[in-house]
Write a protein that binds this DNA or RNA. Structure first.
Lengths: 142, 142
DNA sequence: CCGAAGAGCTTGAGTGCCTCAAGTACCGGG
DNA sequence: CCCGGTACTTGAGGCACTCAAGCTCTTCGG
């Protein structure tokens, strides 16, 4: 009725909705926004330049500037000029930032809680199905 | 390494991310924000009061006021005082609103595209798994 | 019938995310 | 040395969202 509409569509919507809400709650519980939590998480793998963060987070460079400014004000990241190329700023997570990041992960119990309801067999089934859903577009040949 | 971290966790994240992005693109292609598209979609089932919308969309009443104001300015919804209780405003979708809403649904090809990759058997498997994930908390007994 | 309590919506102030357009500082090649 | 391009920042502006106040209207007790 509503359009495309099988029950599966609805389930998918519900899942995404619940997931988003849970992530937002987890971030907020640690005093961050979802965007800030994402940025911080991206830094757990090591320093990144502003530009690289913009690419990874799929957003504008000036947006990264603002996010980093806020996080830096909170002492969660540092932003230092790269000696090799002084145009570049290297952003790193601080120990405090790492703590907060872990707090977010701990508070984000949605995946473990929910996936924990499945048996090992079900999990691998789900993984296979998701892989099929997520596979890159098999685009038409030239 | 990153934390909780199985491949399944990552797949779930990727799915949600792709889903969100697709919805946002679909809404934007129709000239709406995601929030506006949600509100419009909620109205396809019939008129709703402002308060009811706030409950359904899980947000503040004053937020609804603003969203409706914008949509009304675009001629996509109407807001008329309820004759039975003149405190209440009934919000309804207009024909133009319905058209835009359908445009969003048409542009939001993510679920049909992706779910369309599965066989009927796989879809019902997935549906079963999602039902398990989405089931309300089986809270502990007294 | 009146006045107080409360419901429903709006307004105003404030925050954050996000984008685009300009601007600044710096690299590298001619 | 100058010029084009790169990396980041700044400024302006839009939208989503929240909280506190305010307004209108209903309801209920006296």
């Amino acid at each position: 009725m509503t359009g495309a509409g099988s029950a599966l569509d609805q389930q998918l919507w519900d899942l995404v909705y619940a997931y988003d809400a849970a992530y937002d709650r987890a971030a907020r519980a640690a005093g961050l926004s979802a965007a800030q939590a994402c940025l911080l998480d991206a830094l757990t793998g090591g320093s990144r330049s502003m530009g690289r963060l913009a690419v990874e987070l799929l957003c504008d460079a000036s947006n990264v500037t603002q996010l980093v400014t806020r996080l830096e004000a909170g002492g969660l990241v540092t932003r230092v000029p790269d000696p090799d190329d002084r145009r570049v700023k290297q952003v790193s997570i601080t120990p405090a930032g790492r703590r907060v990041c872990r707090a977010v992960q701990r508070a984000f119990d949605f995946p473990s809680d929910r996936l924990g309801r499945l048996t090992g067999r079900e999990r691998s089934q789900l993984s296979g199905l998701l892989a099929k859903l997520l596979a890159p577009e098999a685009s038409s040949p030239s």
